[in-house]
């Protein structure tokens, strides 16, 4: 499912770093990595960039990772998402940026823009899993509200079951408006979690079910940090205006967790 991977580079990465990241993402069934560099229009030497990227492609080839490279010009996030669509990529792989929180709040970041603009899954690699030491995803959290955009997300979860042993299915719901309805909601949530448990049982060695009430972003971050999960899988909705204004669940989770995040549009 993650066969063709677009990996944007700003060319500040070392060869070792590119190799580590590429080998990490490649292990999820990757067949080809497309290294993409976006230049500011009219600035820099395109052929020089092309040759540097070619050098990286060769280096990856030497460790058995099939790769190719592309250099484009324009708005960085738009070009990354456009290129990913053009090459029919399965996922965009983004390492976490370490931009100052104030700067990213006011000016936004390329990562946020890519998440917002992309119609493809985005894998955002954050502090966990730590590349230098383990490079292994051991604990996966699948956050669900049992609503739309769903089947796509759980197909990815099943696929990840081949590489990850432990799964926590987390449901964060909104409290119903009265106790009777709340009871029904809880029963419904338990039933849905059990159904998901049955669905993923064959793919994972160990499955835990969790149900919480309140702000989805806050609880996802809380649970992920509490159990020190390595990866969170979230289905992404096009949230309406007020939610967007306050920050969507996805953007709040991606900026708040230390684990990596796989966002499925």
């Amino acid at each position: 499912m993650l066969k063709k991977i677009v990996q944007p580079l700003d060319m500040s990465e070392s060869l070792a770093e590119v190799k580590m990241r590429a080998s990490f993402i490649d292990r999820f069934g990757g067949e080809e990595i497309v290294l993409v560099h976006v230049m500011n229009p009219g600035l820099g030497d395109k052929s020089l960039m092309q040759s540097r990227l070619t050098h990286l492609v060769d280096a990856l080839g030497s460790v058995g990772i099939q790769a190719r490279c592309l250099v484009t010009e324009g708005h960085v996030a738009s070009e990354i998402t456009r290129t990913a669509m053009e090459v029919a990529a399965d996922v965009i792989y983004l390492p976490a940026s370490r931009k100052n929180i104030l700067v990213s709040s006011f000016l936004g970041s390329t990562t946020e823009d890519v998440i917002r603009l992309s119609d493809l899954p985005v894998f955002m690699h954050k502090l966990r899993p730590e590349l230098v030491r383990t490079e292994k995803v051991r604990h996966l959290v699948f956050a669900t509200d049992f609503r739309q955009a769903a089947s796509r997300a759980w197909l990815y979860v099943r696929m990840l079951g081949r590489y990850v042993s432990k799964l926590t299915i987390l449901h964060v719901g909104e409290r119903a408006a009265d106790p009777d309805t709340e009871q029904l909601r809880r029963e419904h949530a338990d039933r849905m979690l059990s159904e998901l448990n049955a669905k993923f049982k064959v793919d994972f060695q160990d499955i835990a079910l969790m149900s919480r009430i309140g702000s989805p972003a806050r609880h996802i971050i809380d649970v992920v940090e509490q159990i020190q999960a390595d990866l969170v899988v979230l289905g992404r909705l096009n949230e309406p205006f007020p939610s967007k204004l306050l920050g969507s669940t996805c953007s709040r989770v991606t900026s708040g967790v230390s684990s990596s995040v796989l966002l499925i549009p």
Binding site: F142, A143, T144, D145, F146, R147, Q148, A149, A150, S151, A153, W154, V172, E174, A176, A177, T181, L184, R185, E187, H188, A189, R191, M192, E195, L196, K199, P216, I220, L234, G235, R236, L237, T249, C250, V253
Partner: peptide
């Protein structure tokens, strides 16, 4: 706002969706 969502579990229907 929750009224529209409640039909999911009042009727025990609803798809096994998962999104946030």
């Amino acid at each position: 706002a929750s009224e529209s969502r409640e039909s999911d579990f009042r009727g025990h229907a609803g798809s096994n969706g998962s999104s946030m």
